[in-house]
C-alpha cells in the first residue's frame, strides 16, 4: 500500500515509524509506540482525552493524519515528567486532588502545559478556555483549575 516512514521528534527523540496515510497520530502513539497516555474518548476531536502538544500547540491527536506529524515536534504525557522528576503540573494535579478516574488527566495536563508554555500568568478564565476542549466528567473542574493555577505559580517561582 502507501505505507511510509514517518519521522518526527517524539518526546525529544527523533523517531521513525512505518505508518499508513490514513492513520491518525493517536493510533500511532498508542498502537505502535505503546504510549497509551493519550486516551481515546471519542475519536472525533470532541473530548480532548487524546491531547498532545504538536509544534507547541495542543491538538487532538485523533484528528492528526500521520503526514501532519511528519517532521513535527510532538510531546505526550510520557515525555513531560517521570516519577523522579515530575512536571510541576503533574505535581500539582497529584497534590491538589485534581485527578479522579484519570482518563481525562493526560489530555488535560497537556492542554494546560501548552497554556503555561506560553502564559505563566493565566487568569481563571484563561485556564478554563484552554481546557474547555477537555471533557472531565468526575471533578467539576474545580480542582483542575486550581491545580493549573498553582503549577503556574510554582513555575514562576
Amino acid at each position: 500500500m502507501n505505507t511510509f516512514k514517518l519521522t518526527f521528534t517524539l518526546n525529544g527523540e527523533v523517531t521513525e515509524v512505518l505508518a499508513e496515510p490514513s492513520e491518525m497520530l493517536v493510533d500511532i502513539l498508542r498502537e505502535k509506540m505503546y504510549l497509551t497516555g493519550a486516551k481515546k474518548g471519542c475519536g472525533k476531536g470532541e473530548c480532548g482525552a487524546c491531547t498532545v502538544i504538536m509544534n507547541g500547540e495542543a491538538v487532538n491527536s485523533c484528528m492528526i493524519p500521520a503526514m501532519k506529524a511528519m517532521g513535527a515536534v510532538v510531546e505526550t504525557i510520557e515525555g513531560i515528567g517521570n516519577k523522579d522528576k515530575l512536571h510541576p503540573l503533574q505535581e500539582s494535579f497529584i497534590n491538589e486532588g485534581a485527578i479522579q478516574c484519570g482518563y481525562c488527566t493526560p489530555g488535560v495536563i497537556m492542554s494546560a502545559k501548552a497554556l503555561l508554555d506560553k502564559n505563566l500568568d493565566p487568569s481563571n478564565d484563561e485556564i478554563k478556555e484552554a481546557i474547555a476542549g477537555n471533557i472531565c466528567r468526575c471533578t467539576g473542574y474545580v480542582k483542575i483549575v486550581n491545580a493549573v493555577m498553582s503549577a503556574s505559580q510554582k513555575i514562576k517561582g
Binding site: A38, I77, E78, G81, L86, F93, I94, I99, G102, I109
Partner: peptide, 10 residues
Amino acid sequence: RNDALEKATG
C-alpha cells in the same frame, strides 16, 4: 491518592 502518580504520568 495512591493512584495519582500513575494517572498523572500516563
